[in-house]
Design a binder for these strands. Structure first.
Length: 915
RNA sequence: GCCCAGAUGGCGGAAUUGGUAGACGCGUUGGUCUCAAACACCAAUGUCUUCACGGACGUGCCGGUUCGACCCCGGCUCUGGGUACCA
């Protein structure tokens, strides 16, 4: 809309959203309307948003989708008499700020502050009812002090197998007769936070270690450089001890099934058996894990991962050279190459043989990187007749294939991966494979060849980053005492200033450059010692922020136990599905540890979880003819070799490029030439993730300037179901804007004066009111906010048609709409003569008596097809209805000369005549 | 490959327990107002057929259960998301 029109509309329609919204946002701020205190008189309700990372790009229209929903719920629950906790904060440690710091030398704290200020401003103009007095930032020392404190809780705990819970490390029973070094090692081996040498993602080009989430498809997310595995000393968290608890805990959570499925999948529990094979020459034991012990007679060879410790010792002299060559090659492979599924399998024969413990068969031992050292035992018994990968490998290296399970005995296929009937397995032939699994595992166990076993995909959590902008790990390295936790009264360990933020070439953290900071003393002996220089990953701060919101300014504890007891757990948590696994799994893990140690009152942190869909962007493309500065319009590019480039969507209107603006957009485009169609340059378009780099970001600010926050709030809800993703489009926002003006006009006459009357409402008007209250209330409860908006539209349409301006009707509607359009509601509420905020008014109750009717318009169907409608009294006897229906001419026509077999009358619903 | 979700007019979507398919909004068409436009308002709008009344078809496809199916069951197809040499 043109700015001139905007003024015209405002003059004509009196709904001055800009004035109204500024006014009420100021009032809420001045009077701290949303400040929350514990209130034992009211039931509590904790509504949480996934707090954002304050990026430099600011909010786009996708961010508020979930925030609007939680704000509506919060305001609704308050009006329903709940004491609502609805906080917001910032996940402010993280890579983009650090990357920016490396490029510009500006301290990440400075850019983070600027970004947060911008985010807060954008959140405020949306009219959210956050209790800003509880705002937190994960990069604030008063916050990360407690993140470090929790880390030390993990460091000072172990997982007790018997009770299946974490206990303080001093309760660990250490075997007697150990030397002091052995004793220290034993204890460290049980801590929930421990140091270990593990393979990490090392990016040689960037000279840094990357987090898993920074590696996409084997290359670095930033720059697209190859990433290799490199063993380095890391802090790890023993999340694997909690696998079963994390799995079982999912059962009672009100979470989307897909998220639970993702977590189960990620944990990846599989049942099977560990079977010991013996190497023929040395008798060395090689353990394999299999989920299909029933296929043991189909084992035709064995495969070890290249990193398997036995590889070098069993390799025969003849094969030594090829095996070493292969090991060397695979160690150099990037993750990209190793994970490329299309590649053909590689491997070498070790020269050694293993003995199948069940049938004493001698099978060759191969080495191949399709077996991973990180899962199971790093060795597999290969059953090419029953496993796709083994089958491909056997085909390539011409190894024998034996079918041992058949679904259908008549087929001649030599490959079948499912369950069925056992064949080629000696005395066991003919058994059902599932049945045989139990029998053979029992035999293996009895004969000492192995045992039933469970395996998980979940690995311990690599908890260190060689990065600057994160929480320092509160550990001191002492020459005599090993790793020592920083004493709790010395927290926080403040992030030091460093000369520059660049990661070092050898993978050491930038914190190592703060040499004075690194030098410290051992808390036990007082001798000189070094601080840990690694920092925590970005997930650390978000693992427990929901707890800190309950008591954000406490400097004695991470939160007061009474406040934790009052607010726990989070009743409703809304956020994007991209956090389905990592954040939600890590947070659950920390929570369970804190629960075991008696620090939090619940076993699970988030009772109900809802994923809002992602709002995608619509990108525009221009097509540059290769090696030229000429751009060809969408439908003419056919014959040319073109490179599509993203064009900022602000340079396009309905996919037509503003060529003049385009040439001024970037210096290298100033001489750009265009091949036009119909005198216009038409851009290509594609729906993809909304992001700064794709130049398709729509900021809520633009929409708010045009239509106001209330319109944007209702429009985003009106788009469709909350959980569903959709591309952003403003088609239809006018409809919502029109609705709000219509609602406004119910209260005002043509001159803009309040025109509410004190007339008594009639039955029809009361019915509209009560129906709307009922519908909106139940829609909010089930998070169907799109249909709630439509209920308001229906209501406004009907009242407008009736010309109803009655106070009784309108007062309740203002309270009902307040969660959705709070600014307009406040303004109308004030105009109706109320001194207090509409937020303090109780949500009206609907009265069923106004909704009841004494008759119902029955759809009359013949053989299930609706033919006409007839109105009958609700208390009319079904037999009387039957008579009337049969006597009707239209129905008679449909029955014709047949006799009705049956007539079904469902009182208050439907009539069906069966002929 | 595996796991999960989904498929309804020109478009976004509605139908809460098996009971009138298409609420509400957008768009489109026609009209009122206007010098004209915008705004606003009124009417029509699933497809096919009919001058009309009406009729036939219709919720991705095939089949089933039922008096009655967008909804339940069996078998597919396609789309989106997650995940993967996990033995």
């Amino acid at each position: 809309m043109h700015p001139v029109y905007l003024e015209v509309i405002q003059l004509m329609n009196e709904y001055e959203f800009q004035r109204i919204e500024n006014k009420w946002q100021q009032q809420w701020k001045d009077h701290q309307v949303f400040r929350t205190k514990e209130d034992p008189e009211k039931p509590k309700y904790y509504v949480l948003d996934m707090f954002p990372y304050p990026s430099g790009a600011g909010l786009h229209v996708g961010h508020p989708l979930g925030y609007i929903a939680t704000d509506i719920i919060s305001r609704y629950k308050r009006a329903k008499g709940f004491n609502v906790l609805h906080p917001m904060g910032f996940d402010s440690f993280g890579l983009p700020a650090e990357q920016y710091a490396i490029e510009t030398g500006q301290h990440p704290a400075v850019t983070t502050d600027t970004n947060i200020a911008r985010f807060k401003e954008q959140l405020e103009v949306l009219g959210f009812s956050y209790d800003w007095s509880r705002e937190l930032r994960t990069s604030d020392p008063n916050y990360y002090r407690w993140t470090q404190w929790i880390f030390l809780q993990l460091f000072n705990s172990y997982f007790d197998i018997v009770t299946q819970k974490a206990l303080p490390i001093d309760r660990l029973e250490v075997p007697s007769g150990l030397s002091s070094q052995e004793k220290q090692d034993y204890i460290n081996d049980h801590r929930l936070a421990y140091e270990a040498e593990v393979a990490v993602n090392w990016c040689p080009e960037l000279g840094t270690v990357l987090a898993n989430e920074e590696v996409v498809g084997g290359v670095s997310e930033r720059g697209g450089y190859p990433v290799i595995r490199k063993p380095m000393r890391q802090w790890m968290l023993r999340i694997t001890t909690y696998t079963d608890r994390l799995l079982e805990g999912l059962e009672n959570l009100d979470w989307p099934e897909s998220i639970k499925a993702s977590q189960r999948n990620w944990i990846g529990k599989s049942y099977g058996a560990e079977i010991n094979f013996k190497e023929a020459a040395s008798g060395a034991e090689i353990k394999v894990f299999t989920t299909r012990p029933d296929t043991i007679f189909g084992v035709t060879y064995m495969v070890l991962a290249p990193e398997h410790p036995l590889v070098s010792s069993i390799t025969t002299a003849n094969q030594k050279e090829v095996v070493e060559d292969y090991l060397d090659q695979s160690s150099k492979k990037s993750d990209l190459e190793r994970s490329d599924l299309d590649k053909t399998k590689t491997g070498v024969f070790s020269g050694a043989y293993a003995i199948n413990p069940i049938n004493e068969e001698r099978i060759p031992i191969w080495v191949s990187d399709y077996v991973l050292i990180s899962y199971g035992t790093g060795a597999v018994m290969a059953v090419p007749g029953g496993d796709q990968r083994d089958f491909e490998f056997a085909k390539k290296f011409e190894l024998p294939i034996v079918a041992v399970v058949k679904e259908d005995l008549s087929t001649a296929e030599d490959f079948y991966a499912g369950h069925g009937t056992i064949i080629n397995s000696g005395e066991y032939n003919g058994l059902d494979s599932k049945e045989f699994t139990k029998i053979i595992v029992a035999r293996i166990d009895q004969e000492g060849h192995g045992k039933a076993a469970v395996n998980y995909k979940l690995r311990d959590w690599v908890f260190t980053r060689q990065r600057y902008w994160g929480e320092p790990i509160p550990i001191i390295h002492s020459d005599t005492e090993g790793v020592v936790g920083v004493p709790l009264d010395q927290l926080p360990v403040i992030l030091p200033e460093v000369p520059d933020y660049q990661p070092t070439q050898d993978g050491e953290s930038p914190l190592a450059k703060a040499t004075d900071w690194v030098k410290t003393t051992c808390p036990i002996t007082g001798a000189p010692a070094r601080r840990e220089t690694n920092t925590m990953p970005q997930w650390a701060g978000s693992c427990w922020y929901y707890l800190r919101f309950m008591d954000p300014n406490n400097d004695q504890a991470f939160a007061d136990p009474n406040k934790l007891a009052h607010w726990s757990p989070v009743d409703l948590y809304i956020g994007g599905a991209e956090h389905a696994v990592l954040h939600l799994l890590y947070a659950r893990f920390w929570h369970k540890v804190l629960f075991d140690l008696g620090h939090v009152p619940t076993d699970e942190p988030f009772q109900k979880l809802v994923n809002q869909g992602m709002i995608q962007g619509r990108s525009n493309f221009a097509y540059r003819i290769k090696d030229t500065n000429t751009f060809v319009s969408l439908n003419l590019k056919g014959d040319h070799d073109v490179t599509p480039i993203h064009v900022d969507i602000s340079l396009c209107h309905d996919d037509v490029l503003d060529t003049e603006a385009f040439t001024k957009w970037q210096p290298d485009l100033k001489d750009a030439e265009f091949v036009l169609e119909d005198g216009k340059y038409i851009c290509g378009a594609e729906v993809e993730k909304m992001s700064k780099s794709k130049l398709n970001v729509v900021s809520p600010d633009q929409i708010i300037t045009r239509y106001g926050a209330d319109t944007l709030r209702m429009y985003e809800m009106f788009l469709g179901p909350l959980e569903q993703g959709k591309p952003w489009s403003t088609h239809g926002i006018d409809g919502v804007f029109k609705f709000l003006r219509k609602f406004w006009k119910l209260f005002h006459d043509e001159t803009g004066n309040l025109a509410v009357t004190d007339d008594k409402p009639n039955a029809q008007e009361l019915k509209i009111k009560h129906l709307t209250i009922k519908k909106v209330g139940s829609d909010i409860e089930r998070l169907s906010l799109n249909t709630a908006v439509s209920a308001f539209m229906i209501c406004a349409n009907e009242l407008t048609a009736l010309g109803c301006r009655k106070r009784d009707i309108l007062t309740d509607l203002v309270v009902t709409i307040a969660p959705f359009a709070p600014h307009m509601a406040e303004e109308l509420w004030e105009a109706l003569g109320n001194a207090s905020s509409v937020g303090s008014a109780a949500f009206p109750d609907h009265d069923e008596t106004y909704l009841q009717e004494d008759s119902h318009e029955y759809p009359i169907s013949v053989n299930g097809k609706m033919r006409l409608k007839m109105r009958f009294a609700l208390d009319m006897a079904p037999t009387d209805i039957e008579k009337e229906v049969l006597a009707t001419e239209v129905i008679q026509k449909w029955i014709g000369n047949k006799t009705p077999k049956k007539i079904i009358v469902i009182p208050g619903r439907i009539v069906n005549v069966v002929v």
